[in-house]
């Protein structure tokens, strides 16, 4: 129920069961060089993510939330701060898989090849990986399209391929970078519901970056807010809505109350980011 604003998230947000966090990021900063001098994208940003938690990360455009995701994915390096990840003993499992926006699905691979891609790159045998891929294609409802190429699918179907590609890879952490951002509102709603179902089955640790406050509240156990550029911690909200959730959850008064509270907190930052852009 608490919607407390915190300066340092580790003080306020203890683990639900007292365990050590899966990922602990402390005072992470990222500076990009540019021709106008260094640009600070991320400043003193701290975050704990617990095992099995669905964490939504929300902030205005250009606040560095994608940058943070890329650092966790190993696609970029932090300029300062520390990130410690509590890894599983099983070395064959990849640490993280990322769901990008829908155009990151490989156009030259069929749906089945796309979904099996991570397994293929990790050297899983052909028969094993095609069995795993077929299972996930089934689960996202694309069985009839396994041999299709992405351009033959709609945007929503393409993104389901992107989600299946990540889940088939069975990572310890699922990173999602505004996966539904490029889709139209109705397709987006349908995919949010599917995502809830898929997550309910596996309860994987998820870090979900989004622009949409409603999406963050509907999906997340916790919503972390970031300030405008350079991004740092703004506030944090627990989302105590009952699981399993569905679209019906959005009709609950608590959902509306939380969404509005988050918006209140974020409004100044959005204003600031708009003014900076001008």
């Amino acid at each position: 129920m608490s919607t407390d604003t915190v300066d340092s998230p580790h003080n306020g947000a203890a683990s639900p069961n007292g365990a050590a966090p899966k990922i602990r990021a402390v005072a992470v900063g990222k500076t990009f060089p540019s021709s106008h001098g260094p640009v600070e994208a991320l400043h003193n940003f701290s975050l704990d993510i617990y095992e099995g938690e669905f964490l939504s990360l929300v902030g205005p455009s250009g606040c560095g939330k994608s940058t943070f995701l890329r650092i966790l994915a190993g696609l970029a390096e932090e300029s300062s701060g520390q990130i410690s990840i509590h890894r599983e003993a099983k070395p064959s499992r990849p640490l993280s898989s990322m769901v990008f926006q829908e155009y990151a699905v490989f156009p030259w691979k069929t749906v089945a090849e796309n979904v099996a891609f991570g397994l293929h790159m990790r050297g899983v045998s052909r028969s094993e990986r095609s069995a795993i891929a077929a299972d996930w294609i089934d689960r996202v409802g694309l069985r009839k399209f396994a041999r299709h190429y992405p351009h033959q699918l709609s945007g929503g179907m393409r993104q389901r391929v992107g989600i299946a590609r990540a889940l088939a890879n069975d990572p310890e952490i699922l990173l999602m970078d505004e996966p539904l951002g490029a889709l139209d509102a109705q397709t987006r709603t349908v995919l949010q519901e599917q995502l809830l179902e898929l997550w309910q089955e596996g309860r994987k640790t998820v870090l979900y970056v989004t622009h949409s406050i409603e999406e963050a509240v509907l999906l997340g156990d916790r919503v972390v807010l970031m300030t405008a550029h350079p991004g740092t911690n703004k506030a944090e909200f627990d989302i105590p809505l009952d699981r399993p959730r569905s679209l019906k959850t959005t009709a609950e008064p608590e959902f509306a109350r939380l969404s509005y509270a988050i918006w209140e907190s974020l409004r100044d930052e959005v204003q600031r980011s708009i003014e900076e852009a001008e």
Partner: peptide
Amino acid sequence: IEPVLLEAGRNYGA
């Protein structure tokens, strides 16, 4: 090449 495709390749272990 769309950078996100290269990132996807790297992230999935290529």
